[in-house]
Design a binder for these strands. Structure first.
Lengths: 257, 257
DNA sequence: CTCAACAGAGAGCGCCGCTCGCTAAAGTGA
DNA sequence: TCACTTTAGCGAGCGGCGCTCTCTGTTGAG
């Protein structure tokens, strides 16, 4: 689990004092273990029933302890849920990073990462919903998870940047984004990768597409709309890649409308 | 309220027997009125606290009646929520339709509809979440709402189709979608508008983009990412319109990466 | 006028998140 | 070693939830 970053530790104090520092005393070891067990049970129940069906009481029941005892480890149900959220961001980011083969062609890398993110999401739909669905009411997540939440889109950025350095990017076509629409902080974040504002805008759209198409598939919006979700997803991936200048190839298509 | 369609009436029996048939007896009139009042109170509470914070008991309390009495009107909380969902789909569809000026240029129509949908969504974020966020666990919505849920994307389709009939569409460029990926039912639905599978695929993506960018904005995923959400949204609209062949104009952009 | 359909109330079931006060054990410093 | 603090866990309990059931009074139809 790659959690952490200073902010996260500050807010999720219960979790991290238990998990991060190498446990020395027996009490600390027991605490770390139980914390992990609670998280594991919660994760299981999240996978089965979704966030709405996850209750602290049932987690406690599964672990054979009083529900009130769980509050020694997580200050609230929301904090438990936030921990699972961080875990989910971490996992989907890792799935993206692991799927990326920097030695391969940029189109292949791009498609592989997209597919890996989709595969993880289909296998972890409730975790996906936690990240990209309706936010849980009392959640403190946004700023906590910024670093870990950025790993997946940053993996996409790296592929485009590598292609740029290899000078295989096509010139960008189509409407242009007002550079002022992009947050300077975002440009700073991508500084090492030398992204123009226009490329940044398109990267944001690509990330949004990746998340959006998966969401549509998971939430049933593609029912009676698409017949082959995987093929449609690949199409979306290629379309977004090409929009960023990745050298995807395609035959000429006739007029639409 | 444009609810209805056969399916909806069958499933949401409580609601529609109360609302649809012109009330004759005093009892029927009272029932219709109370049904509306319950829906209105629920809508208010949804707008304030979101779906998670909406309880049948608090609705009953607001209306000064026993919570058990509400069950005479809605069989369950889920059914009440589903009614609100149908209402939301109807409203966002109407917002799209009303914003569309068929006599205007297709690019202007396209942008106007996108902006209207965004405006409605920003003003009704919890209703938006009901439609496009994480689905509520026990909801029966999908097939019920098919007709009414289709109005918004169909408005987008009509603009493109009109542009096609007026022969102002540009040839489509970029990667091509495997026609087999699109559900034939979707093509039938757009039959009157003479959509090719390729145009249909791009329309689905445009609809997905519209929903996705708004979702990102509402759920905070654009924080520290974009600086001017409205401008970025317009950019997404133009980008998707151009991808469908709508004659948006843009200057040539330099290389990205 | 009779009788069935119906609306509403209230009690109650088993959940839920969360709090509080208590006990017993574990760790700590003199 | 022993007093003292910190901690883990428990059980009772609060108010709220969705939902069911039974009972009563009213409305509308034949």
């Amino acid at each position: 689990m790659h959690i952490a970053s200073g902010n996260a530790r500050a807010v999720l104090s219960f979790l991290y004092t238990g998990l991060m520092n190498a446990p020395r005393t027996a009490r600390e070891r027991a605490r770390a273990e139980l914390t992990r067990e609670i998280l594991a049970a919660a994760r299981r129940q999240l996978g089965e029933a979704g966030a709405a069906g996850l209750s602290l009481r049932s987690v406690a029941r599964e672990l054979g302890m009083a529900s009130s005892a769980v509050y020694r480890y997580f200050a609230s149900r929301d904090e438990l849920l936030t921990s699972l959220l961080v875990e989910a961001y971490s996992e989907i980011g890792e799935a993206a990073i692991e799927a990326d083969r920097p030695e391969a062609a940029p189109e292949a890398r791009w498609l592989a990462v997209w597919r890996a993110v989709r595969a993880w999401s289909l296998a972890n739909r409730h975790e996906y919903a936690l990240m990209y669905g309706t936010p849980v009411p009392g959640y403190a997540a946004p700023h906590i998870t910024a670093e870990v939440a950025g790993r997946m889109p940053l993996t996409l950025a790296r592929i485009v940047a590598d292609a740029g350095r290899a000078a295989v990017l096509r010139p960008l076509t189509g409407p242009e984004c007002d550079p002022a629409a992009i947050d300077p902080a975002m440009l700073v974040l991508l500084e090492g990768e030398a992204f123009t504002p226009e490329a940044t805008a398109r990267l944001i759209l690509a990330w949004n597409r990746l998340v959006g198409v998966i969401g549509y598939e998971l939430h049933g919006h593609l029912k009676n709309v698409t017949a082959d979700d995987a093929a449609f997803f690949d199409y979306a991936a290629r379309s977004e890649g090409a929009n960023l200048g990745l050298p995807f190839t395609w035959p000429t298509v006739p007029d639409g409308g």
